[in-house]
Design a protein around this nucleic acid. Structure first.
Lengths: 249, 249
DNA sequence: TATTATTTTGCCGTTTTATGCTTTTTATTT
DNA sequence: AAATAAAAAGCATAAAACGGCAAAATAATA
């Protein structure tokens, strides 16, 4: 049997069943496991499948980390995410909120960092799947079509059963006086649950949102332990936040 | 024998069997292996076939592998999804499993159909967000990097609290005798929970998977109410399933 | 027809590739 | 931490590819 034939067979097996054992393939093809291993290695190198310990899995839709190019103020958000990523510690248990800034944070998690991440956000969850050492736990619930996050009583309840070291969240509006506020009441309910579930809160927020407010309140400003903006921590725009025991990054 | 003739023979052999061994050809044509090798080299240069170590393969053979970059057997899966979509009723409460076939079903849900959909699969959830009249509820849990679905105790528990009319599921392997089987034990646990949560089960399965099995059992074949393949219901390949009170589509 | 030039073919030694086996290292599970 | 399974590395063998060479076949030409 030709090598090409073998590899073709392997590919169809993988495509058919999504995952295969090297030993099974070896048996089917009647070749040594080494040969199969080498074949799978090659196919992996050609990006035809993904080799895993003991077998291979289909790429499926895995390769769809297409960055949304039209993120508003992307540059600044990346700066924020970059700063925030320094708060991550190996072995940490964290929550990552939805929103484009948090999504950037998820993207910036180093491959070698071992984390347990909770999230409500489908895009964040997707992004986290690319991180080899991140355990992803999705908080289920009714999914909001626009925010693409779990919401509603179910999500709130599920959040009530977890407890994380750090929670990285975004907000619609923030203001020293009124704290974190949102346009949407349902969102606020979920965010409150997130806050309850976290030991420490990190707010990721572009400076443009500072000193703005809306009608529904998520929490007071001093519920926030660390605030990360794209500005330098000593920037005057942040003065108002300085006397609130908030760490500025 | 003329060179032209020889090469023609080689080509037809390749066309017929998709592949040839140089040694076989040499024997058939009663020429030295070197001659065959040179012939094949020429034909390869003319793009009439592809030379590989030890033989040659037809061009069509390799092109098939390109299709794998997307979804394996996509055509058939769309056919299946199309048939399955006729089972959907306005106002229905359903569950949609992960996997590419189920993903196609999610894609095919009409915009005007009002549904409540539970799912464990991130890609399916994403797809469903595009459907204006579908309420999406994601069953949370630890997300499997391979299958991109919720798994583990949490997912199982969350499933225990729901009840749907129809559950559309896929399977790794299916066989009349051994029922639905999987490669992965954890997957089986989740699928069992799915089955418990559904009044009726619809299995979406390309015919290629019929009469295959693996080591972990999800359920007996008669746990399935309806089976959808890309074949016509009266196809002989489905005969074995006929006396199991399964509706074939 | 005889001679020469060109192409084709087979042969041989060398190099490369493929494969299986054994041992060591690394991952995973208990 | 021990036991097990898998991957990697190295080695040996056999098959295949390659390049050069010369004989044979074919074509061209005098």
């Amino acid at each position: 049997m030709l090598k090409e034939e073998r590899q073709q067979t392997i590919l169809s097996e993988v495509a058919l069943h999504n995952r295969v054992l090297l030993t099974d393939i070896a048996e089917i093809l009647e070749v040594s496991i080494d040969t199969v291993r080498r074949d799978v290695k090659e196919l992996d190198a050609e990006n035809k499948l993904r080799k895993v310990h003991g077998g291979a899995i289909s790429l499926g839709f895995t390769n769809q980390s297409k960055r949304n190019t039209n993120t508003y103020a992307l540059e600044q958000k990346i700066v924020i995410a970059e700063k925030a990523s320094h708060l991550l510690r190996n072995g940490g248990v964290i929550f990552i909120d939805g929103g484009t800034t948090c999504l950037e944070l998820a993207r910036l998690i180093p491959d070698d960092l071992q984390l347990t991440c909770f999230t409500l956000s489908l895009p964040v969850a997707f992004e986290l799947l690319n991180k080899p050492n991140v355990e992803v736990i999705f908080i289920g619930g009714k999914i909001s079509k626009d925010a693409q996050i779990s919401m509603g009583a179910n999500a709130v309840h599920n959040l009530s059963e977890i407890n994380v070291d750090y929670s990285f969240i975004g907000t619609g509006y923030v203001d020293v006086l009124h704290g974190l506020t949102e346009f949407d009441w349902d969102i606020v309910q979920v965010k409150k649950a997130v806050i309850k579930a976290a030991k420490k809160m990190v707010l990721l927020c572009i400076s443009e949102k500072l000193n703005s407010q809306h009608r529904f309140k998520t929490c007071d400003i001093n519920a926030i332990n660390t605030m990360v903006t794209e500005l330098a921590p000593e920037n005057n725009l942040l003065n108002l936040f300085r006397n609130h025991d908030i760490r500025l990054l």
